[in-house]
Amino acid sequence: MSSNPASPPNGVSRRGFLSGSATLAVATPFVAHAAEQAAPGAAAKDPHAKVAVSFNINGKPYQLGLDARTSLLDALRDHAGLTGTKKGCDHGQCGACSVLVDGRRVLSCMSFAVMQEGAEITTIEGLASTDGALHPMQQAFVDHDAFQCGYCTPGQIMSAVGCVQEGHAENDDDIREYMSGNLCRCAAYPNIVAAIRQARDDMKEG
């Protein structure tokens, strides 16, 4: 298993600390140590208090102060200003929120952001090179018209990158099966398969 992000992260977040919640984070004591938590009978901490969390997104460090309930997806969109990752169901049923965490594709709606302390997260914004050249998977999606409305596309592309890296894109049957967690209501499926086939070969050469 690779722990590297899919490609060199661009290191720049255009809308970094948009929400302002990041600044709250610094002052909030972080509640990570079991020893502090485990005292039996200890009064529960205020569940509405903000919790600090730090992780890297596309190679850039973020420190956010979040409601513990904030999903990784909402943290990306509402707190890190990275709206490329999409919410399609919020229940792990559509795949639109797929990102890479420590190199593996996951559903960002199904994880609380506070659980991602120290993680390396790669989103669609981190896939193209800093010089603007598209990742082979992005280029293949363009070449094969692998989307229509484009809404599920960031999730499809992140999932596809993960799928190739996992070795589950060696033939069309595998691509179809291992990409079945990403719904496309416009139904670009045959084009998505063709795109992944092309990108798989380009990624091997590259």
Partner: peptide, 28 residues
């Protein structure tokens, strides 16, 4: 590619979508 059929007779060219780059980079 299958995605871009060769135009016959009066058909227009299979230009890629002009907003494709925005859609594959999460910027749309």
């Amino acid at each position: 590619s299958d995605a871009a059929p060769r135009p016959n007779e009066n058909m227009g060219e299979p230009f890629p979508r002009i907003d494709a780059r925005l859609k594959v980079t999460g910027q749309a």
